[in-house]
Design a binder for these strands. Structure first.
Lengths: 139, 139
DNA sequence: AGAATAGCATACCAAATTAGTATGTATTCA
DNA sequence: TGAATACATACTAATTTGGTATGCTATTCT
């Protein structure tokens, strides 16, 4: 159980977009600054756009901007945008063939835990992470 | 990001062992009752033993018993026992080649989040899960 | 003692997921 | 028009996950 690179990269991309303060940033520029693989990031940005976390303009001088204020973009939103299976815990997941179905007493527990973890992640906004990141960089 | 079957199966095995109330339960018996693949569970039980969550006796009439009281066995312990990479979040993970190293301001954030998630998981003891499970079954 | 039962260790294998690439098309600006 | 860019689809490679196979070692029962 670990946070995958999709979430990490998406977060880094969003931080880079936020850092450009309203000016559209191209995928190429994001990748150059964060040293990330371009085509892969384009994929992830498509997910972020579908989730309405960013909006984009094509063509020359185009790129991405945030579609919400940074305090309205939360970590779990980001995770879901690039990794749509997130938080199907235990036998609540799509097709656990060993789950005992109606007799399985674990469903309730997994739901409870998933909700708690979910809430914890939602506490982290892009705005907060951006500030922390900046603080660290300048010390 | 999801809890894998290792954790799920390990938990189910532990519940089954707890349910036998001190009598050793064989891997075969656990698998029969929970309908789990035997060889795979043997693997997981080896992990649980290495983590000192269960102890075992070999030979005829042998099997597994809990090595701690069920309120001392916590969910994250179980996860770590069967999945030792658990909670290396983001670029704190083993070898994120795109991490910017000393200049990466995300390490602190990931640590903070990891600790929160960790704490949430540790709140869930085997004893608690067992009770919840039982309650559900008898309603 | 010896058979049966069970844990334990190692290696192997298959399916799924993850990470990343390739190719080409549509859109926008200058 | 042409360069720069997003966007779409398909493919590939590496890793992880889930599971088997084989066989040995330890313990208990008769």
């Amino acid at each position: 159980m670990a946070i995958n690179t999709r979430t990490e990269y998406a977060l880094r991309a969003l931080l880079e977009i936020l850092n450009s303060d309203g000016e559209a940033v191209s995928a190429a520029e994001i990748c150059r600054r964060q040293m990330l693989p371009k085509k892969y990031i384009e994929h992830l940005l498509a997910g972020l756009k579908a989730a309405a976390l960013v909006s984009s303009t094509a063509g020359a001088r185009g790129g991405y901007i945030l579609a919400r204020t940074p305090d309205q973009i939360r970590l779990h939103d980001i995770m879901q945008a690039v990794d749509d299976t997130s938080w199907e815990l235990g036998c609540n997941g799509k097709d656990d063939k060993y789950c005992l179905g109606a007799d399985c007493g674990l469903h309730g527990i997994w739901n409870e835990i998933a909700e708690k973890l979910h809430n914890t992640l939602q506490e982290y906004t892009l705005a907060y992470i951006f500030e922390q990141n900046k603080t660290r960089e300048t010390t």
